[in-house]
Every structure is written in structure tokens, then in C-alpha cells.
Design a protein around this nucleic acid. Structure first.
Lengths: 341, 341
DNA sequence: TGTTTTTTCCAAAGCGCTTTGAGTAAATTT
DNA sequence: AAATTTACTCAAAGCGCTTTGGAAAAAACA
């Protein structure tokens, strides 16, 4: 059933029916009601391709997974998109996903922009230097970044969590507990989030007159295995740290394993604290002892990013949103006073 | 730059240019070459919406995440789609993703079918009873299932791994090592894959004259926490199992944690074996001892599923593919002879 | 009553592509 | 040389929607 048939069925012109359906004012309430009624009854659904062709709007959002995508993004993607998806579909937007393939990432964006395949894109996993911002700006394709590009705050829309503040606070918690030698097990620091986390960590150390020691700082793919290796390595050092700060829950199982293996009690012999994105298969509270975390729902971020982008699309005049989310520090049993000896 | 402009530029009709570009035979090689050349030079790209409207083909594949989606799907989704994405983009297909939202899942499929928004869909995470097969068949929307629906093997396209065989083999490995009391820590058995795994486990037990004991079998969300809890619970039983079979690596960190905590040596006091989908952040080999696994790349499955679906779409006459993949059993240090005492 | 404004509706022109049905020039047959 | 085939190319008609520019009918005004 298409518009033509529907309008014939109603004894109205296509124009009127279209207008009635799309809420234009040039049609009487009575007519609108009648049209809506019949449309519903016969199950009329406008053909999206025709609509897109006619309007030039695609009602779709693009998500392009970087081809050099890493563990910084992948395991978190499902959750992020789960949050965003709710919002998209509530607003009648489709999501167009692109991952890998021969076509290089830049080409994909160009294609999106030029063809109007999507009305906007969300940029995930920004790096300290990120060509995507420039490209998308030039292409005039609306976009929002989940995270930030280095310390750049203007000229593009973003939603980020306060990684720096979170790690500052977390590290401060440890120094307040008397720890003086604190390790950082970070993700790849070419990524902005990891860089910011390191800064926060260093902030807190500096505030205590401590200087960050590269020998107890790592920057690596966020895997269980690296969590294990690095923890083991750091805790085997001559001058070993008494506390460790982790950039991801993905490290944690490995870290716990390493600590156990070395006969160290978590929360007393060594304090652990991790950033927790709320991945549903890794619950910080279920650990023993429960893990002290910096908690921030990546899923909620997904929802909000989607909202903001849709707002930008519907209202291009609105000003670029910049949202910095506070991260909650949840103190649990894995952090304790520095062991004396 | 659109077709009209391009054809004017070439002094040819739109028809000829279109045909030249799309490989129709009615155009001379010389013309085709020239058209291709110029099109490339000016960066002509057909408008996808117009193409879709004209042909009725969308060149897009739908992935609908179940609204009651679970941990059976989510953490694996990124990897599956990473595999599929390569194939999609190599073949010029977009992926249309739908997750959650108000609109119920069934409506989404109906919309897809009726509007031609996608040329086909892949069904993920099939259950023992799954309404999606019936619906999609009725809608005549090409689809392929990753997994199977209960024991149904015909009437729809699928690619599955031999879960039953894998778990039979894994369990047999344990019985061969002398284990007689073996626990199963499974995912939600309403899902086909989990059900099949249980069958395989039971097969092997039966083959040894053992009967499956429900007290050492669990069916639960695949999380670290449940891995810990269930392992701890089972290993605390009066008549405790000497070996455990896990349906997912997601359980494993928790399980190891539990074993450590109880002072049990993995591989000697208790044997562990898990199914490994190859999630990149959880490496079975990096564990200590390295974990014995049933390994099957979910990413490779994604690629193959995509290939098969595209083949079905391009060639509707072809017969429904049914592929059952063998799962490799990789024996490592976490399994050993039953402890005597 | 005639004129102007408002309300309600419509015909037709796109949007950018594919595809049908023909037409012309060149090559081949008769 | 005429008739037939073959090889190329084209004009025009969709695909199903939105939207422009009016027109007719109804309401308001003079």
C-alpha cells in the first residue's frame, strides 16, 4: 500500500494525505484525523527510500568502527550502542554500522557525507590527534564525539567523562591512605581517554610532592592477560608499588589472579582500584573483596550522545553541545591503608 | 555530481552511462572504459537512496538485537559483527543495526520486510523455540541464523558450531582422565547453544555409564561473577566435582578466582575446561596454567554468515546453506588426571 | 451584494536512479 | 543493392515520496 493507493482510497490527493500524515498545518483537523485513522487501519507505511530520496534526509546515524580498532573500543561498543539504540529507535532513526573492510575509513565518511546516507555520525574512541574531526567538519556532516580529541574542547560537539578528575580523585584516595608508590596500568595512551587518565594520576601524585615513575606505569591493550602480566611485573619490582590504578575492568581479573598467585591480599597487601564502564559481564561488586572503582555507565553515555546528535540534526542552529560527566568514585574493599613494614 | 550531469559531461545519455557503470552488455568496451574513467576522475557516486528506490534493493543487511538481549549475545556481538562487517563492506553492503527501543522486535522485522529497508537479516542468539524463524519465513525476508533453533535443521539457513560435539569431546577428555564427577557451568539453557552443550556433556557422561547430576549443573548468565559463585558453590559441595566444564570464557576469571581462594590448584586439584569464542580481551593461553578450551572463532563465523547471506540474496534460487562447524579442542594445562584420595 | 481573506485541497514537478522500448548506424546476409 | 542482423545509444517512463504554486470553496469583510 503506497501513498497513491491510500489517497485514492481516501478520495484525497497525495499532497493532502502526505501533509496530513506529516503534520503540516494546511489540512483540517477532521481530514487529518480521518487520514491518520485509515492509514493506521490499512497499515500504511511510507517507503523509506522514497522518503529519503525526496527529502534528502536519511533518518539514519552512522557509526564507523575504526579499521585500526582496538580493545579500547570493541568490548565497549555493544554497551554503548545498546544505550544509543534505544534513543535512536525512539526517534525513528536507523543506525548504519560500518566496520572494517577494504574501503578505508575516510572514504566511508566521504561517502556518507556526499550521498546523504546518514544524517550524522558518532565518533568513537578519539585519539590525541584525530583526523576525523577535521574531515567531518570539512564535509559538514553533523557529528558528535564520545570522548575528546586531546585537549581540544571547541569546534566540535562532544560528550566525555571526566577521566582526569576521576583518576586524580582515585589516586588521591590512595595517597590519602598513605600510599606513596602507586602504579598505573593504563590503556593505549594514544587514545585521549587514556592520556587524560594518566594526567589525573599525575596530578594527584604531584599534589603530594610525588613524581610519576615510568617504571610503574604501563600503557597497553586492555586485556585480562595484560592485567595479569603487568600486575605481576610491577609487584615483582624491587621497589614495588603498594597500590595499582587500572584503566579498565578488563585488566582486573588478570590483576587479581596475579596478586593471588603472589600470595598478596587485596585491600591490605596491595590496593586495587579500577575504572568501571559498567560492562554487564564484569561486576566490580561481585569480586572478593569488592572492588573500589570509578564508575561511569558507558551505556548511559551512549543514550545521551544519541540524544545530543539527534538534537543537532533536528536543529542545526543549536550550539554545539559539550558535556563533561562527573565520574563517581565508589570505595569498596580493594583499597586500604598502605601496609607498614 | 549526479548521473545527469555526468552523462552531459560525457555527451552520453543517462541510460548509457548507467549501463556502462553497471556492467550491462549493451555498451561498447570503449564507451564503458571512458565512462568508468571519467566517473572515477570526477568522483561520481550514485545516490544510494535513488538507487534503492529505483531497484527496490537496499544493499543493506539488518541485525536486530533482541530486546530481551542477554549476555549470551552482547559481549560477543562486537566480534561477530567485526567479522561480518569486513565481508559486508567488501561486497558493498551496509549494515543496519537495530537495538532495543520502544518498537518491538517483531515490528522491526515487519517494517524491514515491507519497506525493503534491508535485503536480508541475520538472526543471532536463537532459542530452543524461536518465533523469528516463522515470522521471517512468512515475510519472505531472506535470513540466516547464527546457531540453530533447537533441533530444527531444515526450512531455514543456518551456520552453527558443533556445540554438542564439542562438549561431548571436552567431557570425554575429562572422563578419559579419570574424572567421574564433572560439573557443568552453562549459559541460559533456553538458548539453543547452551542446550546443545548440555546434551554433549550428557552424551559423554552416559557413554561412561554416568548420569548427569543436576546439583552440579548450572544455567546462568555468563558473567565473571556467576563463574565465581557457581564454582565456589560446586567446589564446596560434600561430594564435589573434580572437574568443571564452562560454557564461556566470561565465567573463567571468576572460576579461577574461586579456585585460588579455596586453595585449589587448577589442573591438579580441579580440572577446568571452557568454551572459547576467541574474544580478544580474554586469552585462554595467557592464563596460568593455560586453559584447556574448545575453541571456535566467533569472528570467523560472522564473516562466513555474511558471505552466505549475501550469496542467498544475490542468488535466491540457491539452496539454503547449512553449515556445522567443528570445534577444536585445545588441551592445555588446566586439565589433568583426577586427583586421588 | 461583491470583494477580500482564510481554509482546504490539488496537479504537477522534482529527488536521482534503473529499465523498457525504440531508433540509428554499422556490419552481415541475401 | 536490398534486406536483415548486430552493436550502440537514447528518450522517456517509472520507483514512492515531498513540496511548490495555485485553485476552488468557505468564511469574513465591506
Amino acid at each position: 500500500m503506497n501513498l497513491k493507493q491510500l489517497s485514492k482510497h481516501l478520495n484525497l490527493s497525495q499532497t493532502t494525505v502526505s501533509r496530513a500524515l506529516n503534520g503540516y498545518p494546511e489540512v483540517s483537523e477532521e481530514t487529518r484525523r480521518r487520514v491518520g485513522e485509515v492509514a493506521r487501519r490499512v497499515g500504511y507505511r511510507p517507503n523509506p527510500h522514497a522518503m529519503r530520496l525526496a527529502t534528502g534526509k536519511s533518518h539514519a546515524i552512522g557509526h564507523v568502527l575504526p579499521s585500526d580498532r582496538t580493545l579500547m573500543i570493541d568490548p565497549h561498543f555493544s554497551d554503548f550502542i545498546a544505550g544509543a539504540g534505544d534513543v535512536y529507535s525512539a526517534n525513528g532513526f536507523d543506525v548504519m554500522l560500518h566496520v572494517g573492510g577494504l574501503e578505508d575509513e575516510q572514504t566511508v565518511y566521504r561517502r556518507y557525507a556526499q550521498s546523504g546516507a546518514v544524517d550524522g555520525v558518532v565518533v568513537m574512541g578519539p585519539r590525541l590527534q584525530d583526523w576525523r574531526i577535521e574531515l567531518l567538519t570539512e564535509l559538514e556532516l553533523p557529528f558528535i564525539v564520545h570522548g575528546r580529541v586531546g585537549d581540544l574542547e571547541d569546534g566540535y560537539a562532544w560528550l566525555d567523562i571526566d577521566n582526569r578528575g576521576a583518576f586524580r580523585q582515585a589516586t588521591k584516595l590512595l595517597t590519602d591512605l598513605g600510599h606513596r608508590r602507586i602504579g598505573l596500568i593504563n590503556g593505549n595512551e594514544a587514545m585521549t581517554f587514556a592520556s587524560h587518565r594518566r594526567q589525573g594520576y599525575e596530578d594527584a601524585l604531584l599534589a603530594n610532592g610525588l613524581i610519576a615513575d615510568p617504571t610503574v606505569m604501563t600503557s597497553d591493550a586492555m586485556t585480562e592477560e595484560n592485567g595479569y602480566r603487568q600486575t605481576k611485573r610491577l609487584l615483582s619490582l624491587e621497589n614495588k608499588p603498594t597500590a595499582l590504578v587500572f584503566s579498565s575492568m578488563l585488566f582486573i581479573s588478570g590483576a587479581i589472579r596475579a596478586a593471588h598467585e603472589m600470595g598478596l591480599q587485596i585491600g591490605s597487601d596491595v590496593s586495587l582500584i579500577a575504572h568501571d564502564d559498567g560492562l554487564p559481564f564484569l561486576n566490580a561488586e561481585g569480586l572478593v573483596p569488592a572492588l573500589t572503582t570509578m564508575r561511569s555507565s558507558i551505556r548511559a553515555a551512549g543514550s545521551r550522545v544519541a540524544e545530543l546528535l539527534i538534537e543537532m540534526i533536528n536543529n542545526p542552529a543549536s550550539k554545539q553541545p559539550h558535556e563533561l560527566w562527573k565520574v563517581d568514585l565508589v570505595v569498596r574493599g580493594s583499597t586500604g591503608p598502605v601496609p607498614r613494614n
